[in-house]
Design a protein around this nucleic acid. Structure first.
Lengths: 218, 218
DNA sequence: CGGTCGGTGCGAACGCCGTACGCATCGTGC
DNA sequence: GCACGATGCGTACGGCGTTCGCACCGACCG
């Protein structure tokens, strides 16, 4: 056999392996940024934040851990990329869409919460990193939401603080929930609060914030 | 030399070291839970969450890293303990104190924020762990704050969600600030927002939530 | 007073981590 | 046909959390 598919293995047996036929399995896809963040997302959703290591991530894409560094500067960048990836799932209504601002902001808040509960590791990332350099997806959502407040009639100096208030509440409320879910998933305790009750509590706080913001529009 | 102060060193020289006199330096204070959490708090405040390692913590108390395990089950417990320690700094007014509920809750929120900004690593802990098993200090503060809402006249089913709304906002808003501060401290960028502006934005959101809650008391 | 015995500090070691580096390989443009 | 950049990877380094067994010490019991 030509020694071109088992390149320099120090303990390789001398016999020719039968699978020597197709030069490399299917090297078509190999490595790429997109493939890496997809694998990282799979790993994080399946096993949580502290299960993400460069070696495991390499195995997930079918490569050695150190190969990733050809495409990514390090673990931090992987986390930034995958965070922005899930931010692509966010939905916030356009500012010029029909319907009142309150409904639109409420939906956006629920959507942000739903995304974070789908990917509970997001809470850990936000705690550690904060949006260090917020990616394009997160930036886009941020701007869309700000537009919601601006067209609702909030004065220029208040639109941003108002948006921050809503987002802060959602992030804070959801962090607690996500940590709770992670603990459950990691085999800790059993589900205590039925889902409906958590939903109700979350919406209660969100509506109170919207009540408070609405008084500023009079 | 009596081999009782350099117990079993495989490459020890045969000559008697001169410093054999005072058997151990001053072994008076040695190790204890309190000493360990105090050292951990010092380390965390000085260098942040990811600088906390059992070895460094051991060095901080003047011991080997592995010695800590005689007093503490592991790193997680250290974090739980030190988190509850700083929660002892929290101040929330008594429910039967004079003054309106709104002022009391507002003060409590500002106090919680101030504590977290004094110890920015708290945000990381809340993100990762959530109050896993909330310690006695945190529990005490939680109950005091709940009492504030109950005596304010919130119906029994609303007092807890109302409290959670306020706490969630404060935690969410402060996490972002703390991450920002940590990045600044770690030498990243320069202070961009003056402190006063951040204070103002935080208070804006807090007051809007209180506005919203107040409407429920009519 | 001698002996034993639980509590305590610690060195060594295991397995994992993030990452730097140099080598082998491969596809591609001259 | 060949040189060269891009790419995958084995190796290695330093650090991490944690376990384990040994040395030591004070206290208690005879």
């Amino acid at each position: 056999m030509s020694a071109d598919e088992q390149h320099h293995d120090p303990v390789a047996p001398a016999v020719a392996p039968a699978w020597a036929g197709p030069r490399r399995k299917e090297r078509q896809p190999v490595l790429s940024r997109a493939r890496i963040v997809a694998a990282a997302l799979r790993l994080l959703d399946a096993e949580g934040m502290e299960a993400l290591s460069m070696r495991k991530l390499g195995a997930e894409v079918g490569a050695a851990g150190t190969s990733l560094y050809r495409h990514v500067t390090g673990k931090d960048e992987v986390i930034e990329l995958v965070l922005d990836e899930v931010c692509g799932e966010l939905v916030v209504p356009a500012a010029d869409a029909p319907g009142d601002w309150r409904e639109a902001v409420s939906r956006s808040g629920h959507n942000l919460r739903a995304m974070t509960l789908r990917h509970p590791w997001v809470a850990s990332v936000l705690g550690q990193v904060g949006p260090a350099h917020l990616g394009p997806n997160l930036m886009r959502m941020s701007e869309r939401m700000l537009a919601l407040f601006q067209t609702a009639g909030f004065p220029a100096s208040e639109a941003a603080p108002a948006m921050r208030a809503v987002v802060s509440y959602v992030v804070g409320a959801t962090s607690g929930e996500a940590a709770h879910l992670s603990r459950i998933a990691r085999g800790g305790l059993s589900e205590r609060n039925p889902r409906a009750l958590r939903d109700e509590h979350f919406d209660y706080g969100l509506q109170r914030i919207l009540d408070g913001l609405q008084t500023r529009l009079a």
